[in-house]
């Protein structure tokens, strides 16, 4: 009997503590045949499970070009993530996916890319950044603005440096006022304001903005002023999910099922939906 709720087994090959309460985990399929077949689009998500504790939904934050492993990143906040926090190399967990639509990267060809992320929203942007860097000729200038509450809350910090070394890639990092340390060399301020101050070209741009609702809300007027249409502004909605396949009934925003038609949508699409998110 085909069982859509039964996960595949994946083995933990590395874990990394990113902040005091955020970890990233790399996993590979136990079945090597499956590892070769498996394909996904950046922006899609998976449902990861610690047996005995349950399942949680996370973006697959590795690039779809990487065949050796899948990566996900989470904050320790509940029963399942407490269990995932304790994972060590060699442990086996469950994976279902990929689910959702992913980023329409084909439509982004020839465009400048602007990535705006806040806090734990970096992982779902990171996969798109790596994808863009690996297909560098397809895209124009890349601007990355990433901020967190404090210096200690920034994730994938070493990769920010790697990205900045690529030609025509600008990386601006920031922390909320009061979140800086004495040796902090980045900007101080909230992501929308820092992005505004950073300036730069807006023509022919695609924006991917993911973060807390307040950050997205304050970013939109700035994008409007820059003349970037809302159909060129993408986000990823991260509603609570259980089944991942449009049955369990909780991730919908109006008739839009985030697990199936999302999680990625444009601001223009989002504005047509009821504000039930």
């Amino acid at each position: 009997m085909a069982n859509i709720y039964k996960p595949e087994l994946v083995k933990v090959i590395a874990t990394r503590q990113q902040t005091p309460d955020v970890k990233s985990v790399k996993v590979c399929f136990q079945d090597s045949g499956r590892a070769n077949d498996f394909a996904f689009r950046v922006g899609q998500f998976g449902i990861f499970s610690a047996f005995g504790y349950g399942e949680s939904t996370f973006n697959i934050c590795s690039s779809s070009n990487w065949k050796d492993y899948l990566e996900f990143c989470f904050r320790k906040v509940g029963r399942v993530t407490e269990a995932l926090w304790r994972l060590e190399e060699g442990d086996v967990i469950g994976f279902r996916g990929p689910y959702g639509n992913g980023y329409p990267v084909e439509d982004w060809k020839g465009k400048n890319l602007i990535f705006l992320g806040g806090g734990i929203a970096m992982p779902p942007i990171r996969c798109a950044i790596w994808y863009a860097l690996e297909n560098r000729r397809d895209f124009g200038d890349i601007t990355i603005v990433y901020g967190a509450r404090t210096v200690a809350d920034l994730v994938y910090v070493d990769e920010l440096d790697q990205w900045a070394q690529h030609p025509n890639v600008r990386v601006v990092r920031c922390v909320d006022p009061g979140g800086q340390t004495p040796d902090w060399k980045g900007e101080i301020g909230f992501v929308p304001h820092v992005f505004d101050r950073a300036g730069g070209s807006s023509a022919n741009s695609i924006v991917l903005v993911i973060g807390p609702p307040i950050m997205i809300k304050n970013t939109l007027p700035i994008l409007d002023r820059m003349g970037i249409p809302h159909r060129a502004v993408y986000t990823s909605l991260e509603n609570r999910m259980k089944c991942g396949c449009g049955k369990c009934g909780r991730c919908n925003v109006g008739a839009f099922y985030i697990c199936k038609e999302g999680p990625v949508l444009t601001m223009e699409d989002l504005e047509r939906l009821p504000s039930d998110y």
Partner: peptide, 20 residues
């Protein structure tokens, strides 16, 4: 609508769905 949770211990158990 339903919920999916694990019932069991660190050695064995089952994934179950409950009405929600």
């Amino acid at each position: 609508c339903f919920d999916i949770i694990d019932e069991g211990n660190a050695n064995e158990g089952a994934r179950v769905r409950n009405w929600d």
